[in-house]
């Protein structure tokens, strides 16, 4: 993909990709802003019934997300350390996904919060959790891809930097989700 006669291009590419990631994620925020707008509309219309899962439990998955953000935010140059933080992040991400899956599972089977019977609140709970979860999975897939490439000896420091940004993005969007949907 490199143009001929462009030796210093790789440095440029890194900065360009970084800019693309920043702008792309910033713009994609509009996706979650729109979802929040929709939920906010319904919350203004009528009281929002409390979800069957306690708010503290629903807040818990935020922890691995924030930890993951912290782990990935530290810039490391040593390949082994990069790999270790990727592994930690992957475990934390898996923990987040597992918790979200557990809460939705509990809500559905143990507390009988159902679609479509329970209307918009249930729709928002399951639907928006799923849409956010898909974004988390995408970020995790990126991290996994980097980890594999790192094992094969590629230099992934810049890719990891961009994936860290993606991680921060889904963390902040999770906060938005929490405020919009999970908070009673």
């Amino acid at each position: 993909m490199r143009a001929p006669h462009e030796e210093e291009a790789s440095r440029e590419d890194v900065a360009t990709r970084w800019l693309g990631t920043v702008l792309g994620l910033a713009a994609w925020t509009m996706f979650f802003v729109s979802l929040t707008f929709a939920v906010g509309w319904y919350r203004m219309r009528e009281p929002w019934p409390p979800l069957p899962i306690s708010t503290w439990l629903l807040a818990l998955p935020g922890l691995p997300l924030i930890l993951g953000s912290a782990v990935l935010a530290r810039r490391r140059d040593d390949a082994r350390r990069v790999l270790r933080s990727l592994k930690v992040a992957l475990v934390l991400g898996a923990a987040f996904v597992a918790m979200q899956a557990a809460w939705t599972h509990l809500a559905w089977w143990n507390h009988h919060l159902r679609i479509p019977d329970d209307g918009v609140p249930a729709s928002a709970f399951y639907g928006l959790t799923a849409l956010h979860g898909l974004h988390v999975l995408a970020v995790l897939a990126g991290a996994l891809f980097s980890a594999v490439r790192l094992k094969r000896g590629a230099d992934v420091r810049d890719a990891v930097r961009r994936q860290a940004l993606g991680w921060h993005f889904v963390s902040v969007m999770w906060l938005l989700l929490f405020l919009a949907v999970y908070l009673p």
Partner: peptide
């Protein structure tokens, strides 16, 4: 992305039975 959000919610209403945009006689749960 705004279109994507609206369309995603609509698609869930079509496929998963969510109730984001359904009202009137066809609505369930409010």
């Amino acid at each position: 992305p705004v279109l994507a959000a609206a369309t995603a919610l609509l698609l869930m209403d079509r496929l998963l039975g969510t109730q984001f945009f359904i009202a009137g006689a066809a609505a369930v749960g409010g």
